[in-house]
Design a binder for these strands. Sequence first.
DNA 1: GTTGTAACAGACCGACTGGTCTGATACAAG
DNA 2: CTTGTATCAGACCAGTCGGTCTGTTACAAC
Lengths: 200, 200
Amino acid sequence: MPRNGAPTRERILDAAERLVIDNGYAATSLDRVIAESHSSKGSFFHHFASKDELARALVERYAAADIAHLETALAEANAASDDAAERVLRFVRSFEDTADELMSAQSSCLYVSVLTERELVERGTSGQVTNAIVAWREGLTGLLQAALPDPPGLDLHDVADHLFVTFEGAFILCRATGDPSHMRRQLRAVRQLYQALLSR
Amino acid sequence: MPRNGAPTRERILDAAERLVIDNGYAATSLDRVIAESHSSKGSFFHHFASKDELARALVERYAAADIAHLETALAEANAASDDAAERVLRFVRSFEDTADELMSAQSSCLYVSVLTERELVERGTSGQVTNAIVAWREGLTGLLQAALPDPPGLDLHDVADHLFVTFEGAFILCRATGDPSHMRRQLRAVRQLYQALLSR
DNA sequence: GTTGTAACAGACCGACTGGTCTGATACAAG
DNA sequence: CTTGTATCAGACCAGTCGGTCTGTTACAAC
């Protein structure tokens, strides 16, 4: 086999991810992705058939990392305590504790950038996002069901989805205010709200 | 005075708002805005100096309507009950009751589209968004303070911001899943979480 | 060394972009 | 009826866009 192209592909994905998260998909030109990844037109189109294909690869990689992150946190929460309510709170707390780190690594969420463009979604880019959302929903619903076996008038799926909603909404709030500490503070608020629900 | 250009300007803003909410700012071309508003290049650039100027006008109009909506709901909540906790719940409930209507009128939020593009934000488009966020924060913090005068380890500003976060996050969730009912369900979830907090 | 091919480089292309410019048109004031 | 101007129409322009094409280079197999 000739040269190994994998590192180049990763460099392109890294640069594209940063640019798309910062400025959105349509506002990110391939010329800029190519320049910032120190690549070339020929190289880019050798690895990706089109810009849309790049978007699909970006989302696939991002969603896989997201789900891996979720599963690590789930495992840690399960190992940390035998009390079901405590597990829920530990789970949320683990994201709260790493929120500042997260926000210094990325200025927003790739999901937001991709979902903002409806025509892009309709070209089949959002399947992996839905997978990730379902994984978060089911993971947290499991923890919540153990803590609230007979919830009074609550849909635990919605309560579980609310954590994803908090993440995405907090990204927007951080961007609007220019203050990345809102991510940690919103995760803290949602933990305290969950705590109120579980300790009633 | 010659012809009245105000209706044309509004038609352009209406078309642009729908297109930008659907597909984002960069992905929305002026040609398309002009076509869908049944206008022309000359007409467009008579009313707006540039595309960025259009963005600023869009956000200004959208934020003003947003704040007006907030103030109506605040007044209604205050009129509806004397109990402070009840006022908070009524306030959230009013958005829950109109959520389906909201989602049939718009597929997402203009704030998301505009904030997604950092370079656009840096060109001074987000000032009005911050105003709106502060208005929501202060309005709801007022209601919460009356219900929880001495909150134990809670930052009521963050708890108040959480409603805005829920709105924005739910817009993302709706777009990802293609299911607009998530808006109502997330507002219901956050109301139930607030209820748990207030009735502890 | 020859050869085959994945990996890369960059000139080039048509389509479309935001924006300009010239001119036409409606309408109120005198 | 003339005139001034806000409003509008659309041909046009330079630059950028995603994408193509031709060619070169590195490396493994033989």
